[in-house]
Design a binder for these strands. Sequence first.
DNA 1: TTGACATGCAGGTATCTACCTGCCAAATTT
DNA 2: AAATTTGGCAGGTAGATACCTGCATGTCAA
Lengths: 104, 104
Amino acid sequence: MDADKVFRALADPTRRKLLDRLYARNGQSLGELCEDLEMARQSATQHLGILEEANLVSTVRRGREKLHFINPVSLHDVYERWVRKFERGRLGLLHDLKKQLEGE
Amino acid sequence: MDADKVFRALADPTRRKLLDRLYARNGQSLGELCEDLEMARQSATQHLGILEEANLVSTVRRGREKLHFINPVSLHDVYERWVRKFERGRLGLLHDLKKQLEGE
DNA sequence: TTGACATGCAGGTATCTACCTGCCAAATTT
DNA sequence: AAATTTGGCAGGTAGATACCTGCATGTCAA
């Protein structure tokens, strides 16, 4: 897994919106995904390319269409490596912060 | 919570490194955090500013030093809004993908 | 086979980002 | 008080990023 690609891919609101829309209905074509994005098709293509590069989305061609599917593997890896770690230490970290804000 | 700020903050490898270093030892000063970052102090200041803007780091001044603490609240919010959602649907999403790769 | 439809490719531009250098202010130490 | 340490502020630059337009290719349907 390339954590950098995944984080960078998630850093853009349009791409997060695309993931949300795919979550709502998986397997949409490029045209469908573009519909209410308020940007040119080319821009959406670029965004989807970045999501694909990060392995957050996988595609399948069907005739002249390209169908997009969420690939949850990368996201799960990020969770394992990043979120769980901080989640485990969460209460301790909050304690450090609170203690310091109170003036030691 | 401003999801956009949080994701953008996490998108840079230097900033993720800073979070890791703070996780290893919470409450470090700017100087300490700079030590083996191989970049000018000013650059690190900027990165820490972005982490602070995103509420991923909180700071306390002590004399001429500025101490940095991980603030796990934003990260937890991102987890709730983004990771858990996809985590819940994970097996279903994988199924969609697999089915399609096999040709329906 | 011809026209309509879905997507790909090339390139161009304005803004954002991650660095830098140089100088300044405040707190501590001697 | 003078020197040192710690951090802040201003501004400048190269490259990345997020858009765009225009044209080409492949697929389906009439």
